[in-house]
Computed example of a mutant assay.
Amino acid sequence: MWVDRADWNCCGEPFRIGSQVTWELRRDIDVRWLMEALGSDTAVSVDAFQYHHGDTDVASEQTSGTVARIRAVHWRSAPQTGTVPGSGVLTELNEADRGAPDRGDLTFEGFLVTLKQ
């Protein structure tokens, strides 16, 4: 599941591995932009994204589970295309609390989170 930095920094609550969470998820995610930065093997595992800003025209589902894995996602941005292909880096974390710092020229973009239901 994808947790976007902008949405998370605005409205997210800290969580850690082992936390019980209930999140609104949307399943209509297009992972092509993740494929560009992280490759298809990682991107195809993303089946939803956390959604805080209610759009009544789009279906979301309340999902509860236990946080099993947290990875910070960083990539290099390009002025023309938005993302430098293949520049994505994943960092394992034990907790998430208002994002992660940028890593040199790699910008923090969000989290990949695994929930066990």
Rank of each mutant, 00 (worst) to 15 (best):
T91H: 07
S19Q: 14
G54L: 11
A96I: 03
T66A: 10
T56I: 07
T114N: 08
I17M: 09
R76I: 08
F15L: 13
S87A: 08
S19D: 15
S87R: 08
A78K: 09
F111E: 04
I70A: 06
V21T: 06
V58Q: 05
C10I: 01
S64T: 13
R32K: 10
D97F: 00
A96H: 02
D30Y: 04
T107P: 02
T66S: 12
V113N: 02
A100Q: 14
A68N: 05
L90D: 00
S19C: 14
I70P: 04
N94T: 15
Q50G: 07
Q50V: 13
G39Q: 04
A68I: 02
G99D: 08
G18W: 07
T42S: 02
W8L: 08
T107S: 14
R69S: 12
V3I: 11
R5N: 09
V84R: 08
G99R: 12
T83Y: 04
T42I: 15
R98H: 13
R32L: 04
D28E: 14
D105S: 07
R27H: 15
A96G: 01
D30P: 02
Q50T: 06
W33N: 12
S87K: 08
W8P: 02
D30G: 04
T42W: 00
K116H: 10
W23K: 02
Q80L: 13
W23V: 07
G110W: 00
E36S: 15
L93C: 09
T66H: 07
Q80S: 12
A43Q: 05
